[in-house]
C-alpha cells in the first residue's frame, strides 16, 4: 500500500512555520497557555489528594465533633440536610417558573422579559450578597436566628436561576410536535405538560439540579452569617450548623488543623467531582 500524499509531517509543518515567525509565536503561546491550564489543574488536584488522602481517618467520621477528632461527619450531615432543604424549595419553584415561561407565557410578554432580567441579575449576584440578604431577611426579619433553615433558604434563592435556566433549556428542546400531537388528541394543557413535555426534559432538568447541588456543597460565603458555624449536628431546623465547605474555612480560621483541612478538601473535591460527572452523564442521556 502506498502512502497518501497529503499527510503533513511535523518537519514540513516546522519548515512552513520557519518562514512565518509570527504564526509560530502564536502557536507556541497557545500551546503554552493550554499547558499552564492543564498543569495547574493537575497540580491543584494532585497536591490536594497527595496531602489529603493520608490524613483521612475514621476519626474524621466520628459522630460528635471535638477538638481531638475534628470530625467532619456533623458538617457532612449538615451539608446533606441543607442541600436537601434548599432543593426542595428551589427545585419545584424553579421548574414551575420555567414551565410557566416556556409553556404559558406568550412570546414577547413583558413578564418574560422581566423574568429574564431577574434571573440574569440573580445569577450574577456574588454569594456574599446573598449571605447578607439571608442574614437580614431570614435571620433577623423572620427571626429564625443562625439556623440550618435560614441557610437552606438563602441557598435556595441562590440556585434558583440555575435550575430555572436549565429547565427552560430542557423544555425548549422538546419538539413542538410533541405538544401539538397531544393537543390534537384533545388532551388538556396540564396533562400535556406532565405526561408529554416533562418526561423527555427530565435528564436536562436533572443535570441542572445536580449542578445546583454542586454549588450548594461548595458554598461558604453565604452560609457563615445565615447557617452559622456550629460544628454539631443540629437538633432542629432552627439551630445552627456548618456545612463541609464552612467547616474547611473554620479549620483554616482556627489555624490548628491544617492536616484535617486537607482531608476535608479531598472529601469536598470528591463530592463536587461526583456531582459533575453525574450531571454530565445525565445530560448526555438527554442528547442520545
Amino acid at each position: 500500500m502506498k502512502n497518501p500524499i497529503n499527510q503533513s509531517t511535523f518537519k514540513r509543518r516546522m519548515r512552513e512555520y520557519q518562514k512565518r515567525p509570527a504564526s509560530f509565536v502564536m502557536f507556541i503561546l497557545v500551546m503554552l497557555c493550554a499547558c499552564v491550564t492543564v498543569l495547574s489543574f493537575v497540580f491543584l488536584v494532585g497536591y490536594l489528594l497527595y496531602k489529603g488522602i493520608p490524613n483521612i481517618s475514621w476519626d474524621l467520621f466520628a459522630l460528635n465533633y471535638n477538638s481531638e477528632n475534628v470530625s467532619l461527619l456533623p458538617s457532612l450531615i449538615n451539608t446533606v440536610t441543607i442541600t436537601f432543604l434548599a432543593l426542595s424549595v428551589s427545585g419545584p419553584t424553579g421548574i414551575f417558573a420555567a414551565i410557566y415561561l416556556v409553556e404559558y407565557a406568550k412570546k414577547g410578554n413583558k413578564l418574560v422579559k422581566l423574568m429574564d432580567l431577574t434571573s440574569e441579575t440573580l445569577s450574577g449576584i456574588p454569594s456574599i450578597v446573598y449571605g447578607l440578604f439571608g442574614m437580614l431577611f431570614f435571620v433577623v426579619a423572620l427571626d429564625w436566628g443562625f439556623s440550618v433553615l435560614a441557610g437552606a433558604c438563602t441557598l435556595a434563592i441562590m440556585v434558583l436561576p440555575l435550575i430555572m435556566r436549565t429547565t427552560q433549556e430542557a423544555l425548549r428542546s422538546v419538539p413542538a410536535e410533541f405538544r401539538e400531537g397531544a393537543f390534537g388528541l384533545g388532551a388538556d394543557k396540564v396533562r400535556v405538560i406532565f405526561k408529554i413535555v416533562l418526561p423527555p426534559a427530565v435528564p436536562g432538568i436533572l443535570s441542572g439540579v445536580i449542578l445546583a447541588v454542586g454549588r450548594i456543597v461548595g458554598e461558604t460565603a453565604s452560609l457563615i452569617y445565615t447557617a452559622g458555624t456550629v460544628a454539631e449536628i443540629p437538633e432542629s431546623l432552627f439551630s445552627s450548623g456548618r456545612t463541609l465547605a464552612v467547616h474547611m474555612y473554620a479549620l483554616f480560621n482556627e489555624g490548628l488543623y491544617i492536616e484535617k483541612a486537607y482531608a476535608t478538601g479531598v472529601v469536598l473535591l470528591v463530592i463536587v467531582c461526583a456531582m459533575n460527572l453525574l450531571s454530565n452523564y445525565v445530560a448526555k442521556k438527554l442528547t442520545r
Binding site: 461548595g218 458554598e219 473535591l269
Partner: peptide
Amino acid sequence: GIPSVVYG
C-alpha cells in the same frame, strides 16, 4: 465546580 474554599 471546585469550591472557592478549596481554591483559597
